[in-house]
Amino acid sequence: MATKIGEKVQNFYNKTPFPDYELDKFNSKDDLVISAYPFAKILDRSIPQNATVIDVGTGTGQLSAFLSLRRKCVWGIDFSDSSLNKARQLKEKLKLDSWHLKKVDILDSKQIEAIGMKFDYVLCLGVLHHTGNAYGGFKNILRLLKPKGYIAVGLYNKMGRVPLKMRKTLAKTIFKDNNKVKDWFIRMQIGDVEDKERARGWWNDQYLHPHETSHTIGEVLRWFKKNNIAYYQTVPASTPFYQGNLEIAGVWNDTNEAYPNFPIRAYNQISWIWKTHHEGGYWITFGRREN
């Protein structure tokens, strides 16, 4: 990533690895399972054991490390050396032989090609909105996806992000020196945490990040259409009154969610202002390459 934005973002992550954790917390593979987020567990159950997986922008690597526990080949790529160093320490400590780590800039198609293999599942969660060229990054990561392979793209939503942007402004202006309010803001997002490194990582990522963009469902649907990716679903759901149980249905389950046409997605994105503000307006779209 030779751009100015890229350099800024790279420096930022080198200084503040994300999502970050205290290495002492992970003494066995069981610890990875216990500390995995509920959504990571849902992803794990949704991906068959024999599938190959790549986590693009893996950071310090909890998700890809956790996914590698039950699989023979899971890759994690990132362009931040210090994040990857932490991930490598974890890999070595827990002897995660099926977890492969590599420094890759996703805006550089040559580096992507250099990986030299394609995957059944490509996960790119919370990465593209920090690249300065989200669509370019998206097209590049498709080079890693096998025909009929599955993809998940996590981005900030234009509407859902509004409350966080307001909180961000408040934190930088009126409550600049008020740590209590800042604590409250971050607790709102990740709950009470003892792990201070993790809390700091999240604070940095959400409130101090040098670059972020936000996107709409329609935008991602257009990316999918242009690149022959069939739409499966979004999390949170794009269909109003949808009551599917993610823990049971998993993701990439194409049974129930209708295609979000313009009125539906407009309605939903407005509702995301209050429904997703805890997560900073974050949503994931799931699809599958058609050929």
């Binding site: 567990k41 794990d44 159950r45 068959p48 054991q49 039950r70 149980n245 049971i248 998993g250 389950n253």
Partner: peptide, 18 residues
Amino acid sequence: PINAVSFCLESQGITIKD
């Protein structure tokens, strides 16, 4: 039995589509 189903699937690391 939504919770019991959820437990059954989770215990095997699968989802309903399996």
